[in-house]
């Protein structure tokens, strides 16, 4: 097992309680079970070297060889209205993106040819390929309080051969992007630090800043986007985000569709 050198003293809440686990089904499942039993506190983070049943959205699996990806879940208690909870996913993607960028800049290994970008609602791409996926789940703890478990899977040191065949054209890693084997503990620390700042802002100011900040960071306003919503494929121009995070898609006939569940092509 890789030794993890994590000092989270720079963060306010996130990672104050941090555990590294060799193998688990899924860090989200583990952390949720702990919360429901009353054994995890706000800001708790669980990191796994390997997930046996890593999950993506619905039936999609998240696969990575042991010790290569950064896989963790964080426990949040966002002060947010129920119909705005999905903004937490956007906020987490902002934190992960901010952490990766900060780490790369500090390490002076950023490859200027590579562009890291947000993809609605909360994926992170590098050169158009998937670098990171985020899956948030809500539940109720032993006291009946609603919580959010935010699961992050970031491809760090995988080589191209280490991705399943069907993902090689669509996935990438920081190693593929930079050519360097990178320390996952330092990346995690940078992410937790960035996310901690956003989380503190959410708790103190509310959620209004999340959608505009995300839109600004993603830079997709006015860009052409393809959306697959169920079996319907739509092409239009991004007309911004709703306050609740929904993507506003302006169709050729001038109408605007609000997208909540679609996939961006």
């Amino acid at each position: 097992m890789t030794s993890w050198d994590i000092n989270t003293s720079g963060t306010h809440l996130l990672g104050k309680s941090l555990r590294i686990i060799e193998v688990t089904e899924s860090t989200n499942t583990l952390l949720r079970a702990e919360v429901e039993l009353g054994r995890a506190e706000e800001g708790a983070v669980v990191v796994a070297e390997h997930q046996t049943i890593g999950r993506g959205r619905r039936d999609r699996r998240w696969e990575a060889p042991p010790g290569k990806a950064l896989l963790f879940s964080a426990l949040l208690y966002p002060k947010i209205k129920p119909d705005r909870t999905q903004l937490v996913g956007l906020m987490v993607s902002l934190g992960v993106l901010g952490g990766i960028e900060k780490f790369l800049i500090h390490s002076a290994i950023r490859n200027p040819q590579s562009a890291i970008a947000l993809k609605w609602p909360n994926d992170i791409l590098a050169n158009g390929h998937k670098l990171c996926g985020i899956l948030c789940e809500t539940g109720f703890d032993s006291k009946g309080q609603q919580f959010v478990v935010a699961g992050v899977g970031l491809n760090v040191n995988q080589t191209e051969d280490e991705f399943p065949l069907e993902l090689r054209r669509t996935a990438t890693s920081l190693y593929i992007m930079t050519g360097a084997v990178l320390p996952r503990d330092r990346i995690l620390k940078a992410i937790l630090s960035a996310l901690d700042g956003y989380y503190e802002r959410l708790q103190s100011e509310g959620e209004r800043w999340i959608a505009p900040t995300w839109l600004d960071s993603a830079g997709i306003l006015g860009q052409r986007v393809e959306v697959l919503d169920r079996d319907e494929k739509m092409s239009g121009i991004c007309d911004g985000l709703e306050a609740d995070g929904a993507l506003r898609l302006k169709l050729p006939d001038g109408t605007v569709r609000r997208i909540y569940s679609g996939e961006i092509g």
Binding site: R57, T85, P121, C136, E137, T138, G144, V148, G245, S261
Partner: peptide, 18 residues
């Protein structure tokens, strides 16, 4: 009371409805 009835997904956030 408190039993999960369904999940509502919005923007990749899975919400348990109790």
């Amino acid at each position: 009371p408190g039993q999960v009835l369904c999940i509502l997904e919005a923007m990749k956030l899975m919400n348990e409805i109790e």
